[in-house]
Structure formats: C-alpha cells, structure tokens
Amino acid sequence: MAPILTVENLTMRFGGLTAVRDVSFAAAPGAITAVIGPNGAGKTTMFNCITGFYRPTSGSLTLRHEGREVALHRLAGHRIARAGVARTFQNVRLFAGMTALENLLVAQHRTLMAATGFGIGAVLGLSGYHAAEQAAIGRATAWLEACGLIDRADDPAGSLPYGAQRRLEIARAMCTEPALLCLDEPAAGLNPRESLALGELLRAIRDGKAAEGAAPCSILLIEHDMGVVMGISDHIVVLDHGSKIADGPPAAIRADDKVIAAYLGEGDEDEEGAA
C-alpha cells in the first residue's frame, strides 16, 4: 500500500543551525509510526514542518489520502488541517476558556460552516443548521465518552486535570476527522497508569474503534517514554542531531547499535578522541 505520508530529503535550517538534515521516511497507512531520538534531535522541528508551523528550507512532504496527493510543504496552516493532518502539542494547547464540549465543536468548524451555508443558515435559523449542529454534538459526545470525559463536558477546559486535558486535546484533533494524527509527546507528564490507558486509546484510534463512527486513522508520534513507544508502535524512525540514524520495526530498533550509541552516548567521536 502507498504510504500515507512521505517525507523526502527534508531539511530545516534556522540561520546557521541545521535542525533537521536531509531526513526521508514513509509512514504506512493504518499504522502507528513513532519518531524518537535524544533531546535536540530535531523531532519537534520535523513535526512543525509537517503541520505547517514551519516552512521547510528544502525537501518535500506528501500526504496521500483518498486517492489524492497533497504537497503539505506548500499549504497555509488551515489548509493543512483541511487536507487531513491534525496535531497535539507537547505543552497542551486547549482553548482554556471554552468548555470541553465547545473545544470539540470548534474542531468541527469546517464541516459545520459548510453545512450551514457559511454561518448564514445559522443566523437565519434554517433547519439544515440544526441538523448539522446536532450531528456535531453527537460526534463530540462520542469522543468525550471515548476519553472518559463525558461528565465534564460543560467544564472549562482549563479547569480539567492535566491527564484529562491531554486526552481532550487528542479528542479535539480527532474531531477534525484527520487521515493522519500527529502527537507530540502525548505521554509527557502522565503517570504509568495513564500512559497505559493512552496506549490503548491510540491503538483504538488507529483501528477506528475509539469512538462511534470514527474512521481508522494513521498516527505519527514523538515520544520519550520508551515503554509507550515500544509497546504500541508499528514502525520507528530514530533521529539524532537532525539526521535519521535508523528506521524499522521496534524489535530491530531495540537491537540497533547506532540507536543504542545515540541514547547511551557510546562511540561518540568527540568523546573517543578525548579518551
């Protein structure tokens, strides 16, 4: 099957610093692909390129979804979301002043606006608007249930506990009905029990079983928690100092010498020279 996301020769420079250097890999559809690497390896920079936060210095990013090919590196922010890429952040970025339910409704803005004649229907109170709004609330409710947040639907998102905010952010990303879900350290700050539940949620999202009416969704994630990564990933890409050093299934990565060296600092040329 053709990969859902193809990254080809991606390079991102900030002035004299090359944060990502000539990285290429492909993410298979219906799979969980993890990007790992030590601090400063360029994981988040690469993520920001994929989700339109940065415009890559060179290279290409191609999303293949429903028979269409989209060049992500040429799109404006909101068009990347419309092409089918959703993301979450390392430090949660919910709309803190809006309720949990409203956060999920905002994510369905585009479908709602299209169904209501770009808001004109809503102002005039047309029946089509009412039906669309009900459908949107239905989907939001299904995701609130999937994340165990249905009791807190009307609480401001900012008042939820940290673990719940993380789950809500994933639910919000899923409400845009993405083809590819990008998660930036989803397990950061979670306790072991919450991490385990997160792993299950991500597997369910991949298989389209997380919420009623959800379609299967490919996942790309950055993660530090090796337990989570090894447990749920189908494919792992390892970055170090901006370059790709390994790419393969978890078992192969675990045994890869270069990866072990990058993580444990062994065999580093500078240190060898000093010793």
């Binding site: 989700t51 339109g52 936060f53 922010g77 909101h78 990347i80 979301a81 419309r82 959703a86 993301r87 970025r93 709309f95 803190a96 002043g97 809006m98 409203e102 409704l105 905002v106 994510a107 803005h109 585009r110 709602l112 606006m113 209501t116 808001g119 809503a122 709004e133 919000r172 845009t176």
Partner: peptide, 20 residues
C-alpha cells in the same frame, strides 16, 4: 459556529488555524 470560531481565534489563533 461562527462565534465559537471567533472565540477560538481570540484564545489561540495559531491553534484555531491548525483545526481548519
């Protein structure tokens, strides 16, 4: 939905754009 979009932009314009 229009008002929700306005409030979302008010709180975090970049994030709103990422949600389409």
């Amino acid at each position: 939905p229009l008002g929700r979009a306005m409030r979302a932009c008010e709180q975090d314009r970049r994030m709103a754009s990422l949600l389409g």
